[in-house]
Design a binder for these strands. Structure first.
Length: 174
DNA sequence: TATTCCTGTCCTG
DNA sequence: CAGGACAGGAATA
């Protein structure tokens, strides 16, 4: 908008840390909406990740999001309840369209990167779709893990192929 | 089977 | 500012 750069005029983010079946995670919220869910090996790494994503925001540990932390932990354990969360992902128009398409994928279902590319009207931008998935700021709640290579296999995952496989396994069992 | 191009973003020189 | 790398995939030789 006005001066320097950045995407959103983020002021402060309420940050909560917690443990899930997939490891330590952080959830960042602003205005009652989730702006990020990230995984990391420890709290320092989690905060570092958030600082990289939101260089212009001040991060504050906030007990007010304790219930949110609990909700997210539950979501990671049981991905079926994703719909109830209020999300506010920051990104380009292209990225947002990709993420919106992903949110239309029900738990237990999967799509190929090519499927998503077609769904957003850019059938040739398959690789760009993968990049958009990799840039997804809200792990699990925006289900990037439900996108798999058309050729087969698990494909890559920002948080590690093992987590992706675990999520798919859990959702397939629903 | 091995290249090459496609497309959006980010990272590096 | 230019070039390369990516969580992929289709087209071409």
């Amino acid at each position: 908008m006005t001066s320097t750069s950045s995407k959103l005029p983020d002021r402060k983010l309420q940050v909560g840390l917690g443990d899930s079946v997939l490891g330590r995670f952080a959830v960042a919220a602003s205005g009652g909406r989730i702006v990020a869910i990230v995984f990391g090996r420890d709290d320092a790494a989690l905060l570092d990740d958030l600082r990289r994503r939101f260089p212009d925001a001040s991060l504050a540990a906030d007990g007010g999001v304790a219930d949110l932390v609990e909700t997210v932990a539950g979501l990671i354990a049981r991905p079926a309840m994703a719909a109830s969360l209020k999300l506010d992902p920051a990104g380009t128009a292209f990225q947002k369209s990709v993420w919106a398409a992903l949110r239309r994928l029900p738990a237990g279902a999967t799509a190929s990167y090519a499927d998503i590319a077609t769904a957003i009207g850019a059938p040739k931008a398959v690789r760009a779709v993968a990049s958009a998935c990799a840039a997804n700021p809200i792990a699990v709640a925006i289900p990037c893990h439900r996108v798999r290579p058309k050729a087969g296999g698990i494909g890559g995952y920002r948080w590690g192929a093992e987590r992706k496989a675990a999520l798919l396994r859990a959702e397939a069992a629903l």
